[in-house]
Nucleic acid binder design. Sequence first.
DNA 1: TTGAAACTGTAGCCAAGGCTACATACTGTG
DNA 2: CACAGTATGTAGCCTTGGCTACAGTTTCAA
Lengths: 152, 152
Amino acid sequence: MPESHADDPPKRAEMPAEPTQASRFGKARTAQSGALMEDYVELISDLIGSGGEARPTDIARRIGVTHPTAIKTIARLKREGLAIAKPYRGVFLTEAGETLAERVRARHRVVVDLLLAVGVPAEAAEQDAEGLEHHVSDATLAAFGRFLRERG
Amino acid sequence: MPESHADDPPKRAEMPAEPTQASRFGKARTAQSGALMEDYVELISDLIGSGGEARPTDIARRIGVTHPTAIKTIARLKREGLAIAKPYRGVFLTEAGETLAERVRARHRVVVDLLLAVGVPAEAAEQDAEGLEHHVSDATLAAFGRFLRERG
DNA sequence: TTGAAACTGTAGCCAAGGCTACATACTGTG
DNA sequence: CACAGTATGTAGCCTTGGCTACAGTTTCAA
Ligand SMILES: [Mn+2]
Ligand SMILES: [Mn+2]
Ligand SMILES: [Mn+2]
Ligand SMILES: [Mn+2]
């Protein structure tokens, strides 16, 4: 692809945010792609913590998908080194999986608390947090934490 | 767990005992599925508003995908009644598309303002809003608006 | 007026994440 | 112990949303 305006010195009074916008969309896409992994890992950790085991059927029901869908996603968790599962044996998290689970759980909590703190009804806060959490960057999470501390 | 639904005809929409968590995940999935449509419609509206036309190549560059990807998504917008496009003639929004664009634009603004108001750095606010906005329900949006008004 | 460059569109590939239908393994009563 | 019922896994299909490669159309400048 040849450059279109290789020669003119950019004195155009155009919108200066051309690569920025595309990169924002790109990062939002990236964040989204990890959302499912994060939710599974958090849920598996919860199930193990509260009942001792995480079985595919339970995971499927809690996530709200059919069991083949859950099994395929669990296969992806294994592929990415977040979980281990032997057939008919339940699902367990690797070290990396546990680490991720804890980070995700903490972030989820902060997001819900922030929503409540700015006056979002509890019902909506719980609902929206499930989607919002995956798009909260470290910088934003830190700001949420400061806000909650300074006006708790 | 003996579920024992002795007699259910293969009808739609089971009624689970605890729909809350699964339904939260489900709604987050639904919200996500509309995200791309929303971003395209908002962008097309912006392009038309600022330059008079929205061409597939410009849309592709601004979203950060290749042009065939943009063209396929535009086809979906047409299919869903949000846009109209004749070959080599640019893309335009239908009434429904314009309405959606305005709602999305307003919501985007509120989300950014809320983030700034709680102390998120401008850079992160702009970045994160691009993903967050699609998971902000009407109830949460209303709460954000109240918060901003009450402590401008 | 014409031809190269840019834009637009088509074809065909891939992975993720849904689903249904079916096959296999486990497990707890009777 | 047997076997029915549940849980688990496999196969195959679909849509979305990416990509590259290539083909057709428009535009603009020489
Ligand atoms: Mn979530
Ligand atoms: Mn969560
Ligand atoms: Mn967006
Ligand atoms: Mn936006």
